[in-house]
């Protein structure tokens, strides 16, 4: 099916070029994309679902979806990284709602043993690691109340109204905090966003 393996070429390819090859069903391209983002996506799945096993299933679903629908990716709407992250989030939130595991999420996440890290090599991976450091630095700077509403929206899949009800806050307050958090992140992560565009 893929007559000419291109391992070395793939590793230096940018995400969009890789995705184009995935659309042509080149398994090696998907493998490279997997190595580049699996760690981040699995961490996201685990954060939402609270279970590595569930998150690994979601991770496989995500990459199967990418394999089958890479042609649907629209570069004008988001970067590949963001596309993958939003697919993962969506799948994980769906699974969370289906299984109604909200209550045991935090318990499980604390109980599970950390998985060993085996960082793949490559320039793109270094960029991803740098991005991680910067995002972490800026997220920590967010005031606690703003960070909380953002996390409830992103990781919990809650709407603004649901956050207001859960946190016992006026809807306007929730919106204001969310907007402030988003604007601060946009300004603070300007350079990162530029790299993604």
């Amino acid at each position: 099916m893929n007559p000419v393996p291109q391992t070395s070429a793939h590793e230096s390819m940018n995400d969009v070029a890789l995705l184009r090859q995935v659309a042509d069903h080149q398994a090696e391209a998907l493998s490279t994309l997997y190595d580049r983002y699996a760690g981040t996506l699995l961490a996201l799945g685990k954060r939402i679902l609270g279970s590595v096993a569930d998150a690994e299933e979601v991770l496989q679903e995500v990459f199967l979806h990418v394999w089958n629908h890479a042609g649907r990716y629209d570069a004008s709407r988001s970067s590949v990284s963001t596309w993958l992250i939003l697919i993962t989030r969506s799948r994980a939130i769906d699974r969370l709602r289906t299984r109604k595991v909200v209550e045991r999420t935090h318990e499980t996440s604390v109980q599970e043993n950390p998985v060993e890290h085996a960082s793949p090599e490559g320039v793109e991976t270094v960029f991803v690691n740098e991005r991680r450091e910067r995002v972490r630095r800026e997220m920590v700077k967010l005031p606690e109340e703003q960070r909380l509403v953002l996390e409830m929206a992103f990781y919990g899949g809650l709407s603004q109204s649901e956050i207001a009800a859960k946190a016992d806050l006026p809807l306007g307050t929730v919106k204001t905090r969310t907007l402030l958090a988003m604007k601060k992140l946009r300004n603070a992560l300007r350079d990162e966003i530029r790299q993604l565009l």
Binding site: A38, K46, T82, V115, R131
Partner: peptide, 30 residues
């Protein structure tokens, strides 16, 4: 687009969790 990318950056705050090798092997088999 900018705010979509902001949302896409949020999970980078998390410590990466590398999946077991069997996950990738199973995926490639699928």
């Amino acid at each position: 687009r900018l705010y979509t990318e902001v949302l896409g950056l949020v999970p980078y705050e998390l410590e990466p969790v590398m999946p077991a090798a069997r996950v990738k092997a199973s995926l490639m088999a699928r």
